[in-house]
């Protein structure tokens, strides 16, 4: 990456983000907003840092919910997308059902899930997966259905076996839509986890903590909790962007890296052999 790209991709977002926080601080100060109505960013930050020993276990709990929920949602989403693209009758019968699952208000399924699964990790994971799988399925299905048909024909001409065509042609062609789905899912995952926590939590959770802060009119604590929740969502999104970059080197590079599979040439095979 050259200097200009580093500037464009890293420095510019940091500047705009800082400007947003600065604006928040100024509105509170100049508007003489009372501290119990809304805090300054600095106060919100202090509410996080001074209560870190309480907040970190709650935050890590929420992270755990999104890890399992997002993981399950991604796997289920990919599975549905692949199966539906391969089996047309499944696409016809299952697609409407999947749409219905998304039309159900997520808040309204939280309570029944608590009845079914109790107060622990279970219902939160299900809710997160419920939200995450859908954009993944839709994007994977679209991606697989729109693979360049000539490439499939080419594979046939080359005498390919079907499952090899799938892994060598269709899967790589679907990486970009897959990550579109995962990125949408990543931002929603934390929302699902918090809804689950609001519906029912044994002991402590970020949602419950925030609820207590509202009761105490501690706006700094409320906003601080929101910032933590947002940070979890943003981390997921950044993780997905990073993974996408690593999975699609050909979109940015003209020459393959030495260690990539496709880059194995004769000379470099011998280098590896010599090293052993």
């Amino acid at each position: 990456m050259n200097r200009f790209k580093i500037f464009r991709n890293l420095v510019v977002p940091v500047i705009s983000f800082s400007a947003l926080i600065g604006l928040w601080e100024l509105i509170i100060l100049w508007g003489h907003v009372q501290g119990y109505l809304a805090p300054t960013p600095l106060a919100a930050w202090e509410a996080i840092s001074s209560n870190w020993s309480t907040l970190w276990p709650l935050t890590s709990w929420t992270i755990k919910e999104t890890v399992w929920g997002f993981g399950a949602g991604a796997v289920i989403g990919i599975l549905f997308g692949v199966l539906m693209s391969k089996l047309r009758f499944l696409q016809r019968s299952l697609y409407p059902v999947l749409v219905v699952t998304q039309a159900v208000p997520i808040v309204a399924i939280a309570s029944p899930l608590v009845l079914l699964m109790g107060f622990n990790l279970g219902p939160k994971v299900v809710i997160v997966a419920w939200i995450v799988f859908f954009p993944v399925t839709v994007n994977v299905l679209d991606g697989l259905n729109h693979v360049d048909h000539d490439l499939i024909t080419l594979a046939r001409v080359l005498g390919a076996r079907p499952w090899r065509t799938f892994f060598l042609i269709e899967v790589p062609a679907t990486i970009t839509p897959l990550f579109s789905g995962l990125k949408i899912g990543a931002t929603y995952a934390v929302t699902g986890a918090v809804i689950g926590e609001m519906a029912a939590s044994s002991g402590q959770s970020l949602a419950l903590y925030q609820h207590t802060q509202i009761g105490q009119l501690n706006s700094a604590g409320v906003y601080g909790t929101t910032i933590l929740m947002t940070a979890i969502g943003m981390s997921w999104f950044l993780l997905m962007i990073t993974l996408e970059h690593l999975c699609t080197p050909w979109l940015r590079r003209s020459v393959a890296r030495r260690w990539s599979r496709g880059a194995r040439t004769l000379d470099n095979t011998y280098v590896v052999k010599g090293a052993k």
Partner: peptide, 8 residues
Amino acid sequence: FLRHYPGS
């Protein structure tokens, strides 16, 4: 050009 991607 063995290690080049076709895009280039």
